[in-house]
Simulated scan of single mutants.
Amino acid sequence: MKETFRIGSWSMLLLVLAFELLALAILLLRSSENKRANRLLAAALCVTAGMLTPFVIGYAGAYDVWPWLSFAPFAIPLALGPCLYGYVTALAEDRPIARRHWIVPALQFFQLAAVFPWPVATKTWFDGAVQEPYLNPLTSFGVLVSMAGYALASARRLRRYEGWLKGRRRDPSPARLLRAPVVALGLLVAARAGYDLWDELVAPVTYFDLFAYYIALGVLGLWIGLDGWRGAHRPRPVIEEAQERNWAAEGRVWIARLQAEDWWREEGLDLEGLARRLATNTTSLSRGLNAAEGGFTAILARLRAEAVAARIRGGDDRDLLVLALEAGFGSKASFNRAFKARFGVTPSEYRVANGTSAPLPGELRRPQP
C-alpha cells in the first residue's frame, strides 16, 4: 500500500499554531524597545514552533512518505528553558545570560544535524540501536530537568524584580511581563512530568497521545508571545545594580554632553530633565555624576562659575549679577558660594585681580576624575 501525505485536522491545528508563533516572533524582532528581551522571546517562539513541526508533518504522514526526513533538527526542546530564562533576565536586568546556558541546546541540535544526512538505512539502525533505547530517555529526562530548573530560576528573577520595584516605590505593573514565562514553564513541567509518569507506571505513551501536550505547548507559546508583544514597545525600569557598569566613565560622558550642549545655562534645569535629554533614568544619571564629579548640583555650579570667570577674563565689565543670571544662577547668594568654592575668591576679588594674566592663587586646575 502506497503511503500518502495528507494534512488532517490534527496537523492543520498544529500548523496554524506554528505559523502564529512565527508571525509573533517577526513582530517582536521589529520592535524598537527592549530589543534584547524581544529577541530572546522571538527565539523562544521559534523554538516552540520547531517543537510542533515534527508533529505537524508526522501526523500528516510525512515520515512514512519521505523517511529521509527523520532526524531533521526541527525540535530543540532543550533550548526553550534558556530562551525564556534569558527573556526574563533581559526584562529585569537588561543583560544577557551566561553562554554556558546554550551549550546543551547546541549539543542537541548538532547531534540531530550530524545524523540527518546519513542514509535512511543507517539512520534506521541508529534509531533502533542508540536513539530509542538510550538517547530518547536521556533527552526526555533532560528536558524535564531543564524546564524545571529554568522555571525556578525565572521565578527567582521575578521575585527579585518585584522586590526591587517595591523597594523603590515604583509601579509594580512592569513585573507582569515576567510572570507569563514563569507560569508557562511551570505548567509545561507539570504536563511533561504527568506524561512521563503515565508512561512509566500505567501504559506506554504513544506518538498520538502527545497531541494534547503539543496543543498546550502552542497555546502557552501564543499566550507568552501576545503578552510580550503588547509590552514590547514600552520602556521599562531595570535593576541597575545587577549591571557591571563603569559609572565614573558614564558620568564623564554625560558631563561632556551637558557642557557641549550648553544645557547648564538653563536656570530651570533639573536632574529629571537632564535624564530625559540623555535618554537615561534619574537613578543612573545621579549615580554616574556622583561617581565622576560630586553630583548634579555641584557640576552645574562649577560650569556656571567657570562661564562667569571666562566672561570676566574676556573683559566683560557688566554687573556681576547680570553675568551670573545669564550663566544660569538663580540668585546672587548661590552665585557667590559657587564661585568662591570653585576659585577660592569672591567674584569681585576675581574681577579686581583679573588685570594680570596670571591666575589667582586660589584658581586651581580642576582635578580630572
Rank of each mutant, 00 (worst) to 15 (best):
F5W: 00
R6Y: 15
W10F: 15
S11Y: 04
M12Q: 09
L13C: 10
V16I: 11
A25M: 06
I26V: 15
L27N: 01
R30E: 11
S31T: 10
E33L: 09
K35W: 11
R36E: 07
A42C: 03
T48H: 07
T53F: 15
G58T: 01
A62M: 11
Y63H: 08
P67L: 10
S70N: 14
P73E: 13
A75I: 08
P77H: 02
P77W: 02
L78H: 02
A79L: 15
L80W: 06
Y85V: 07
Y87L: 14
L91S: 07
A92I: 09
I97D: 11
R100D: 14
F109Q: 02
F110S: 08
F110P: 00
F110G: 01
V115M: 12
W118A: 14
K123Y: 07
W125V: 05
L138T: 05
F141C: 07
A148K: 04
A148P: 11
G149H: 05
S154W: 13
A155N: 04
R160A: 15
Y161M: 10
K166E: 13
R192H: 13
A193I: 02
G194N: 08
G194H: 07
Y195A: 04
D196A: 14
L197M: 14
L201I: 03
P204Y: 10
D209M: 12
Y214W: 12
A216H: 05
V219R: 04
G221I: 08
G221N: 00
I224G: 01
P237W: 11
P237Y: 09
E241L: 12
A242T: 06
Q243G: 03
N246L: 14
W247N: 01
W254R: 09
I255E: 10
R257H: 09
W263E: 06
R265C: 00
R265A: 02
E266K: 02
D270A: 08
L274G: 14
L278E: 03
T280V: 11
T283L: 13
S286Y: 01
A291F: 06
G295D: 08
F296N: 01
L300Y: 04
R302M: 13
L303M: 03
A305K: 01
A310L: 15
D316Q: 04
R318W: 05
A327G: 00
G330D: 01
G330E: 04
S331W: 02
K340G: 00
K340I: 05
V345S: 00
A353I: 04
N354Q: 12
A358E: 06
G362Y: 14
E363K: 00
R365D: 12
R365Y: 09
Q368F: 14
